[in-house]
Design a protein around this nucleic acid. Structure first.
Lengths: 319, 319
DNA sequence: AAGAACAGTGTTATCGTTTACATAAATGGC
DNA sequence: GCCATTTATGTAAACGATAACACTGTTCTT
């Protein structure tokens, strides 16, 4: 791998001049510029990022912490931030925790070791001590990580109400609110609150939370058991994947009204029949990155919570 | 951020000694070890990876190039390599190309700039010149990148045959082979060949390829048009997502037999009714990493193609 | 025409590690 | 008790970039 010294030698100039050409800084004659450029091309020169990072300043890298990348919502979230950061010439470092606090801690260390300029985190282990005194600018995504970390997310309560109102229109006798994991955690809690607010008497509302630490078959079994035991006119799930699981466990004809939450493009594309709440991912990511950049340039954001408006997607067969 | 010098000062030893403690190299007295450890803990010391990488040798980073991360198959592929690499103490650098050759080239440059130790690539732009003389160990995943790059993949032909045989059992009059993108490219071509080999006369077999560069609505429209024009008893798709799209465009009762290909855990979990071919992702990733490590340690692998056996997953309603 | 500003380039310290080399004390064989 | 290891630690030179500083011409001002 060619170094800046090789290029300098080949072009017959000093390393400083090469550096100036690379970074387009300072004064440069057209002649020198061309010579250096030619040398760089000939040697297939690539600046060594480690050396650049070592020198100090910024690494132009942002860490993104997610529970996993299988859930289409997280996949789309990642894709969105990655594309936006790429356009801003930032590298993205994906850290998937798989719900293991240990792995999350290791990735937190790894991000520090890599001198990331900022962190966007949407983790399931919100009370990790490592987030307490953030040495690097951090923004939380749809989770409260610590009182000192700004958070961007959707207006989950409003989303819950939208869903609840839609369901209420169908005048169900009895319905089930099905939480995909711990129901008392953000962002599920406001979603459920919104749903309940809209599902007023005489509608009977049950509520069940799935144990988040159980494997899929066990969770599926629990769902099936719950559904078989009662005659629900509607099942309101706190996320799309849970909703899909519910749908799968009914045969087609006698499926009640099932709703989801999150509304990733993937779901809209491949499950257009599911009624769900669409989170404004593009705007959410843009805001998160903006907050991060402010924080990175020292413009310490007043710690705040941003809640962006959501929209209702009404499912339709064979759109 | 504390440096090794800070630690050395605090522990009253030299930086070399601290380095030895960190890397557990050379001779160390228990006493010194403890002192240094204490100093590191007190300062929350993290070795600077840039400095470490700069010094030379390996960066313990592997680049993974994928078309996108939305497709559950790629998501699971990434998750699998990431977990395996993580266990081996390697960092993973995800590079999504979104099908843009320009972005792929930029990521190729970025990986070189980051001095990755190896690359696992499953790209849609296989004839990129940049892969021609690989300066860094590379393994192709289910794609032929260049004659000099080893490739691991599934036995697509056998998979196609499995699907074809399954469909043939249902004695269809007429069926459609639906290619999710360019049908002449690996790995689609052997899949189709396998299907055709099993669908012998008198079965009538049509074949259509979707333009890979069109947006989803256009592709959906094409699918619907094709399906409406003929009365198919079976639709054999070259990937699961295309299969799902086909399923969605039929109303439930009159859906013909639809099959997919890839068989990610996600699909098995949320579309258990889809008949598909399961690729042995765990083994594929393990092999790819093994080849990479051999290549990294100089054990130049004889350039070869590895095809791992696949299994048929027969879809079942309400498993 | 003298001094200031500007244009173009080179020298060198610096970033935080690792590691080859140097040093020195403790241990062991005989 | 002397030389060869072994054990334990320190010194300093890399690694490849950036940028502060120095230096030399050239081009404006007035």
């Amino acid at each position: 791998m060619a170094t800046i010294t090789d290029v300098a030698k080949k072009a017959g100039v000093s390393v400083a001049t090469v550096s100036r050409v690379i970074n387009n800084r300072g004064y440069l004659s057209a002649n020198t510029k061309a010579k250096v450029q030619a040398a760089m091309d000939a040697l297939h020169y690539q600046p060594n990022i480690a050396a650049r990072n070592l020198h100090g300043k910024a690494t132009h890298t942002v860490g993104v912490v997610l529970p996993d990348i299988i859930n289409p919502f997280y996949a789309e979230l990642f894709q969105t931030v990655e594309q936006q950061l790429f356009a801003l010439h930032y590298q993205t470092m994906l850290c998937t925790t798989n719900g293991e606090p240990e792995k999350e801690k290791m990735y937190l260390r790894l991000m520090a070791a890599n001198q990331v300029d900022g962190i966007i985190s949407s983790t399931h282990n919100p009370d990790l001590a490592d987030y307490q005194n953030p040495t690097v600018p951090t923004v939380a995504f749809d989770r409260v990580l610590s009182p000192t970390i700004p958070m961007v997310g959707s207006d989950n309560q409003a989303g819950g109400e939208l869903i609840g109102q839609y369901v209420a229109q169908h005048q169900p006798r009895r319905c089930l609110i099905l939480a995909g994991s711990q129901e008392d955690l953000a962002p599920l809690s406001p979603r459920i609150a919104g749903m309940r607010a809209a599902l007023t008497a005489p509608i009977q509302v049950d509520q069940v939370a799935l144990p988040f630490d159980q494997p899929a078959p066990v969770r599926n079994q629990l769902i099936r058991h719950q559904l078989a035991a009662h005659d629900y006119n509607a099942v309101l799930c706190t996320d799309d994947l849970t909703a899909i699981t519910v749908c799968e466990s009914y045969s087609d004809g006698q499926r009640p009204l099932v709703t989801g939450f999150d509304g990733s493009k993937f779901i809209r594309q491949y499950y257009p029949s599911l009624t769900t709440v669409i989170q404004p991912l593009d705007d959410l990511c843009r805001l998160a990155i903006q907050l991060l950049r402010n924080s990175m340039t020292g413009n310490a954001a007043d710690v705040t919570t941003y809640q962006l408006p959501v929209t209702l997607h009404i499912g339709q067969k064979n759109e």
